[in-house]
Computed example of a mutant assay.
Amino acid sequence: MIRNVVLVRLRDGVDPSWAAHWRERVAGLDLPGTVAYTQGADLGLRDGTWSFALVADVVDEEAYRRYDLDEEHNRLRDELAPWAQDVARVQFEL
């Protein structure tokens, strides 16, 4: 199993409801080999955190590659790009 973790720091002024809706659309992707999505906005408990996190668990590297190359997934990435100040990603084996 592979876990893909994405952290996003949004630019100032991005509507939180837009970001929540965007996260829900990503978590709603129904791609073969995807086991679970988890997502949420930062709670603001510390300074220096990111705006939100997305976690996708997939069965194997092949499923991750499909997820990474999926047309709708990439359309959503493109939609986020102008609003994201920073994006960090890591994939690791569970």
Rank of each mutant, 00 (worst) to 15 (best):
M1L: 04
I2F: 01
I2V: 12
R3P: 00
R3I: 06
N4R: 13
N4C: 08
N4F: 06
N4W: 08
V5E: 03
V5N: 01
V5I: 15
V6R: 01
V6G: 07
L7P: 02
V8I: 15
V8L: 10
R9W: 10
R9G: 07
L10P: 05
L10W: 00
L10D: 10
R11W: 00
R11E: 09
R11T: 11
R11C: 08
D12N: 09
D12E: 14
V14K: 05
V14W: 00
V14F: 00
D15C: 01
D15G: 00
D15V: 02
P16R: 06
P16A: 05
P16D: 12
S17Q: 12
S17I: 00
S17W: 07
S17N: 09
W18Q: 03
W18D: 03
W18C: 06
W18L: 04
A19I: 06
A20Y: 01
A20N: 07
A20L: 10
H21A: 12
R23Y: 04
E24W: 00
E24K: 10
E24M: 04
R25Q: 14
V26M: 11
A27I: 01
A27M: 02
D30Q: 14
P32M: 06
G33C: 04
G33H: 01
G33A: 07
G33N: 08
G33F: 02
T34L: 08
A36Q: 14
A36F: 09
T38F: 07
G40P: 08
A41V: 10
D42T: 07
D42E: 10
G44K: 07
L45M: 13
R46Q: 13
R46I: 11
D47Q: 11
D47S: 14
D47A: 15
T49R: 11
T49H: 12
W50F: 13
S51G: 14
S51E: 08
S51L: 06
F52V: 00
F52C: 10
A53V: 15
V55H: 07
V55M: 11
A56W: 02
A56N: 11
D57N: 06
D57P: 02
V58M: 14
V58W: 00
V58F: 05
V59N: 04
D60V: 03
D60Y: 01
E61T: 09
E61V: 03
E62M: 05
E62S: 11
E62N: 08
A63E: 08
Y67I: 01
Y67M: 12
D68R: 15
D68H: 15
L69C: 10
D70K: 07
D70W: 09
E71D: 14
E71V: 14
E72C: 03
E72K: 14
H73I: 09
R75M: 02
R75D: 01
L76T: 06
L76W: 12
R77K: 14
R77P: 00
D78W: 07
E79W: 00
L80C: 08
A81L: 13
W83S: 13
W83V: 05
W83I: 01
A84Q: 09
A84N: 05
D86N: 14
D86R: 15
D86T: 13
V87E: 06
V87K: 09
V87N: 06
V87A: 09
A88N: 11
A88F: 14
A88S: 13
R89L: 12
R89A: 12
V90S: 13
V90C: 12
V90F: 06
V90G: 13
V90I: 15
Q91V: 15
Q91A: 10
F92Q: 05
F92V: 05
F92G: 09
E93P: 03
L94T: 14
